[in-house]
Write a protein that binds this DNA or RNA. Structure first.
Length: 374
DNA sequence: AAGGCGTGGGT
DNA sequence: TACCCAAGCCT
C-alpha cells in the first residue's frame, strides 16, 4: 500500500471508529513497525531469511539484559560459533569464558546444554512449536513463544517486560505484577493479528522499548495512543502496577589477591551450584551479613612460604539482584617459586581478560592491582 | 511458588 | 546519588 492510500485508509477508519475504542488495531501496530522497526544485529532485514540459531542465541542473551549489553557478546559468539553444531562442540569452559560479564551464568550452561540437545537429538534443527521449544534447557514460556513466533512465524505472542507494560497501559490493568502476569498474557494474546506473527511479536517489543518506555513514554508517537486507557487518564507511568519486593540484606566478605613476582594472580573455581556457579574467582571468605574482619582473615589462602597479607584501603562494592556486597580486599606479594594451593592456579595478568571472571571479581582484581606495574 | 540468580546503563 | 530495571528461568 502506498503512503497516500494508507493515509486515506487511516482517515476513513478514524471516521467510522470512535476514539478510544475497545480494542487496539494490530494492523496499525504492524504498519508502525514497517516504518520504525529497529535494526538489530540478530534481526533479519525485510525479505532476509531468518536464522533460528541467531534468534535463539539472542533471546537467551537478552533475558533480563539490555540490547546494548548483548550486542558485543552476540557478535563474538556468532563469529566464534556460527551455528548450533559448532557451539555444541565447544567446551563448556569456553562458553563460560565467552559469557563472562554478561551475568546470570546459568544461561550459559543452559545455552550449551540446549545446543548439544538440538545438535544431537534434532540434527541441528530447532523445534518449531511452543510446546517442543519449551522442553529445551533455558527456554521458558517467554522464550519459547518468542522463538516460535519470530523464527517460525507461529501464532504466539511472547510476553516480556515490554509487552507487559504495553498491555497494562492499554487496558489500565489495576492488578499488580507479578500476580497480573496471567491476565496480561491473555490480553496480549487477544491482540494477535491474523498473520505476520513474527513481525507482530517484534513490533510489540519495539513499541515497548522505544515508545511505551517505563518513564516518560512518547505517547504522541504511539500508533495505539487513541486506544490506550492509561493515556486517556494521563497516568501512563503508573502502569504496570507493581508490588515492591523487599531488598536483600548487606553481606560482607574478604577477597585475597596474591600477585606472584612473575606477574601471576591466584585463582580458583567456584562451586558448580549456586551464586556465580562454575565461574572463576580469587580466593576469599564466605559472604555473610554477620561477618567480622577477623573471621575473614582466616580465609586467606595458605601459601608456601607464608606471606603477609595487607588489607587494602577502601573496599569493593557490588550489588547482586538479591543482595548488596561489600568486599574487603587483601593483597600479598608472593615469591616466584610459590606453588598454587590445592584447587587453585596461577594465571598471568595478561590472561585475565579471557578468564571466566564475573564482574565482581574483575572489580576486586582492579582494586588490588591498580598502580601495580605490568 | 517465592526466592535465587548479575550486570551496566539510564534517570 | 540511589534507585530502577532490561527480550526470564529454574527450583
Amino acid at each position: 500500500m502506498t503512503l497516500a492510500k494508507r493515509a486515506v485508509a487511516r482517515k476513513k477508519e478514524a471516521s467510522i471508529r470512535p476514539r478510544s475504542s475497545a480494542r487496539p488495531d494490530p494492523l496499525a501496530l504492524l504498519a508502525w513497525y514497517d516504518r520504525h522497526r529497529r535494526i538489530l544485529p540478530w534481526r533479519a532485514r525485510p525479505g532476509e531469511a531468518i536464522d533460528p540459531y541467531r534468534v535463539w542465541l539472542s533471546e537467551i542473551m537478552l533475558q533480563q539484559t539490555t540490547v546494548k549489553a548483548v550486542a558485543p557478546y552476540f557478535a563474538r559468539f556468532i563469529a566464534r560459533w556460527p551455528n548450533v553444531q559448532s557451539l555444541a562442540k565447544a567446551p563448556l569452559e569456553d562458553v563460560l569464558k565467552g559469557w563472562a560479564g554478561l551475568g546470570y551464568y546459568a544461561r550459559a550452561r543452559n545455552l550449551h546444554a540446549c545446543a548439544q540437545a538440538v545438535a544431537k537429538t534434532r540434527a541441528g534443527k530447532f523445534p518449531q512449536t511452543v510446546e517442543a521449544l519449551r522442553e529445551l534447557p533455558g527456554v521458558g514460556d517467554y522464550t519459547a513463544a518468542a522463538i516460535a513466533a519470530i523464527a517460525f512465524d507461529q501464532p504466539a505472542v511472547p510476553v516480556d517486560g515490554n509487552v507487559e507494560r504495553v498491555v497494562a497501559r492499554i487496558y489500565a490493568v489495576e492488578e499488580s505484577l507479578p500476580a497480573a502476569k496471567p491476565k496480561l498474557r491473555a490480553l496480549a494474546a487477544a491482540l494477535m493479528p491474523p498473520a505476520r506473527y513474527s513481525d507482530f511479536a517484534q513490533a510489540l517489543m519495539d513499541l515497548g522499548a522505544t515508545i511505551c518506555t517505563p518513564k516518560t513514554p512518547a505517547c504522541s508517537l504511539c500508533p495505539w495512543n487513541a486506544d490506550c486507557a492509561a493515556h486517556a487518564r494521563g497516568e501512563e507511568e503508573t502502569f504496570p502496577r507493581k508490588t515492591p519486593k523487599r531488598e536483600g540484606q548487606l553481606r560482607r566478605g574478604a577477597a585475597f589477591v596474591a600477585l606472584r613476582e612473575d606477574g601471576c594472580v591466584l585463582l580458583r573455581r567456584r562451586p558448580e551450584k549456586g551464586l556465580l556457579a562454575g565461574m572463576s574467582e580469587v580466593p576469599g571468605s564466605d559472604w555473610h551479613s554477620e561477618m567480622e574482619e577477623a573471621t575473614m582473615r582466616r580465609a586467606a589462602p595458605k601459601l608456601i612460604p607464608p606471606v603477609p597479607w595487607r588489607r587494602l584501603a577502601g573496599s569493593v562494592e557490588h550489588v547482586f539482584t538479591h543482595f548488596p556486597l561489600t568486599l574487603s580486599v587483601y593483597f600479598a606479594q608472593v615469591p616466584r617459586r610459590s606453588p598454587p594451593p590445592s584447587g587453585m592456579r596461577w594465571v598471568r595478568r595478561r590472561e585475565l581478560p579471557g578468564e571466566a571472571l564475573p564482574s565482581v571479581m574483575r572489580k576486586v582484581i582492579a582494586h588490588a592491582l591498580e598502580e601495580k606495574p605490568r
